[in-house]
Design a protein around this nucleic acid. Structure first.
Lengths: 157, 157, 157, 157
DNA sequence: TTTT
DNA sequence: TTTT
């Protein structure tokens, strides 16, 4: 009835962009979120949380997120299951993000050091990145460092 | 680095209380959280989210939560893995709760209809239910309907 | 950039429904949220948090929330200021809700005891209560106790 | 009963550290949190949210936060009131933080560009900065960029 | 009284 | 299968 998650962590790999048969963009990545306490060996462990984004948000994430980037994610926990190729039921728990904040920009790729790219699924506007699945050829921070609005709230999911 | 989850849903079963070899109480249950949208068949689905609580909070949950109860949970997403009996690695994603709110009391068991039992892990106080693992013999709402404080923040986890 | 609030508390009064000159419904109410700790006198205090809702969500809240009801609110903190009639600037901090959950139904008004009315602002659908500002004459729980979808995400605010 | 806030924004000024008569450190600052939408003039406005931190967290914030820094805050909404010098009751709504994340380090002051200082109130440990109210003479990121644990959960507030 |  |  109420289901809200907020995470800040770092991508463990570059994000993976796919398209559904109907042509809907889906991007998945894993966020390493350090724990606030140390284990019995004095080591700080992390939780590795799988994130899914859809549509324009998926494309923006695929274009601008990279391994190691500090990132904030807001969304909901989703559980689902499917039968794998061995006919065994697999249970999945993941976070479906509707708001992703880029807390570090593409420094290593020549971008400026501005923080603060922002992307939220919304009912209306924003066509940024729509249908754009070639990565890395645009930098949302390159002109003015202002947030970009993208849109994706009328999801059928 | 930041990892926060808030859920409201209903228990799919009675909670299960266990003890670690060191005698620490652990309670697990699953929360059915209805989605805010309907699927392609017009059906409202739910996410089934596994919750873990430790120590006094575990015992209070075991004592007072029951299948079907509307419950609020606050905590963090935890991922872990272990090798099962077939030597296969199993990945688990669950919510470790540090705050559980009983939004419905034990009406069917003769309690009053007060809402609002409250339990949070804290550094200091609260001895309620400590070492008490016999279920259902006390009703935290039976006297005055006021929240109970329990304590469990100095976890080694 | 990221601004999320989740509250569970009880209405301090019946909600107040108004309309802007342009005819947009606005409902305000105050939520008493008990603190998780006691003050120096052993008393549990509460925070009294002002909530604002717009459009259909405003009308549903006006119709079904009442003083004393246990309610969950999800939204964002908003700050604004205006000059009062004495020409003095007044600063306001409040929560703009986009999701309100009715955790207790209208028992005293003859409704059943179902918990779980749900209302979220969304980009698309839902016409429930649209233009309906007569209070209390309908019970969203009276038929099947299922959540109602309402819609209000394309706000100009 | 449940009261949780998560914010990401930028400090509007340097934080202000005070001490209560009993010697407890209190730091206040205001966070500018850009809204996710534009107003009728196409301008993106911000909410200016007052934050309060206590004890070691207060001292760490005073030492390392500065105007303009991108910062994540987790806490609860608090309301309180007092009578001002004109005998008029003043109502205050603010966020009491129990977790503050420094998303940008002290680049301009010669620090490295590491992100990720972390501070949470906890029941037990951490003596970092205890009684230290001289600012800026230590950089938590200067050695290894690892989070610092501080402690403040046994608050009487 | 407001940040990038 | 994991990030700084």
């Amino acid at each position: 009835m109420l289901n809200r998650v907020i995470l800040i962590g770092r991508l463990t790999k570059d994000p993976e962009l796919r398209y559904t048969p109907a042509g809907v963009a889906v991007t998945q990545f894993s966020l390493a979120v350090d724990r606030n306490f140390k284990d019995q060996n004095g080591e700080r462990e992390a939780d590795f949380i799988n994130i899914v984004t859809w549509r324009q948000l998926a494309e923006t994430c695929a274009n601008y997120l990279r391994k190691g980037r500090l990132t904030a994610v807001e969304g909901r926990i989703q559980t689902r299951n499917y039968d794998n190729n061995e006919g065994k039921r697999v249970y999945v728990t993941e976070v479906v993000a509707d708001n992703v904040r880029f807390l570090e920009s593409n420094k290593s790729e020549g971008g400026n050091s501005n923080s603060g790219g922002f992307n939220r699924e919304e009912g209306s506007g924003g066509s940024y990145g729509k249908g754009n699945n070639s990565r890395g050829n645009q930098d949302p921070f390159s002109d003015d460092g202002k947030p970009i609005d993208i849109s994706d709230d009328d999801l059928p999911f």
